[in-house]
Design a binder for these strands. Structure first.
Length: 340
DNA sequence: ACGGATAAACGCT
DNA sequence: TAGCGTTTATCCG
């Protein structure tokens, strides 16, 4: 057989690529969505319900070198047969935002562009969505009054609702929020932080699913204050541990379909990050989606999550031709759909 | 909870 | 392996 040159491939165009998934006809509609979100294709839904967790989790709880860490690792959690398709589906079918906000740095207001695309669904435990999509009080079931939230909470679309059910079943936890991040390449990141906000309660459980490109997920112990009783001088407040006491940094290279459950004392004691990386590429491209499920207890959580994951900016949607997130102009929605 | 500056570590020859 | 370009970690506003 002769070698194929550029002309051969020009005249013999590549076979139409097998689509990663067959779009479902059914969609979740909601007044708060820029556009409806399709349900999972049947094969995804079937695979997810038939084997909820592909691999049993490995617990890492309070190991000597990782004190106070409490995580469960599933590698993978979602079957390899569908994780690539689930990644492509969510990147294609969800709306995303690139939130811009200002922080005061050393007396100067600085504009910060969140270095990743984000989107969020859910509402804190004081409210819920009725079956017709209306936001109602969790106790009374009566519509929440307009002044209750400055933001507009969005229900989980059916696809993420399916995923939540699976994660709740395997973790034994319950969740009312779903945050989705898209890291377009190695320069998208999230800095070290803890999910230790008051509105999550004392020992929050957070389930984090990775899809797409492999990225490092790093844990670093918070600076340890000297034990209260044993520190007579205020100067000791800034003391750090001697090297032999320093907990190690834990680096997890998370691949498509992997899941990490963080729980217990993890957020109190550890920071986590997805650091920038110079050369990030693998078989499914450079893009990575991270889905986290968590439970916000009070209204403040809802306001916070929508402020930092939706914001006020424009909608982005995956552009297949362009190979990147594109500002979404609402084409095809000239039928009177109003985006709120 | 970001990013520029800069220090430190890595990795190739 | 010394040297050097590149990548990663840390500091701090």
């Amino acid at each position: 057989m002769s070698k194929r040159g550029p002309l051969d491939s020009f005249f013999q165009p590549t076979q139409p690529k097998k689509p990663k998934y067959e779009a479902s006809v059914e969609k979740t509609h909601h007044a708060s969505y820029p556009f409806p979100v399709p349900h999972f294709p049947a094969p995804f839904a079937e695979q997810l319900s038939s084997s909820p967790a592909v691999s049993a989790g490995t617990a890492m709880v309070n190991r000597p070198e990782f004190p106070h860490l409490d995580i469960v690792l599933h590698r993978p959690y979602i079957a390899a047969s569908i994780s690539g398709g689930v990644f492509a589906f969510l990147r294609q079918e969800l709306f995303f935002y690139r939130v811009v906000y200002t922080i005061n740095r050393g007396g100067i207001d600085t504009v910060v562009k969140t270095p990743r695309f984000t989107t969020v669904f859910g509402v804190d435990a004081t409210s819920r969505f009725a079956s017709d999509g209306a936001l109602v009080d969790a106790k009374t079931g009566r519509p929440v009054d307009a002044a209750r939230y400055k933001c507009t909470p969005r229900p989980l679309p059916a696809c993420l609702h399916d995923l939540r059910r699976v994660v709740e079943a395997t973790t034994g936890e319950t969740f009312n929020f779903c945050l989705v991040n898209y890291y377009a390449d190695g320069s998208d990141s999230i800095a070290y932080h803890s999910d230790d906000e008051r509105f999550l309660g004392d020992n929050p459980a957070i389930a984090s699913i990775s899809l797409g490109a492999r990225r490092e997920f790093c844990f670093k112990h918070k600076p340890v204050p000297p034990s209260d009783a044993a520190s007579p001088s205020p100067a000791a407040q800034t003391q750090t541990l001697v090297p032999s006491q320093q907990p190690k940094v834990l680096k997890l290279a998370l691949g498509s379909g992997d899941m990490v459950l963080m729980r217990g004392s993890t957020q109190k004691n550890w920071l986590h990050a997805v650091p920038k990386r110079a050369g990030v590429a693998n078989a499914v491209g450079q893009g990575r989606i991270n889905i986290t499920f968590r439970k916000a207890l009070v209204r403040g959580g809802t306001e916070n999550y929508y402020a930092y994951n939706v914001g006020k900016g424009q909608v982005f949607r995956w552009g297949e031709r362009e190979g990147k997130m594109m500002p979404w102009t609402g084409e095809g929605s000239g039928d009177g759909v109003v985006c709120v």
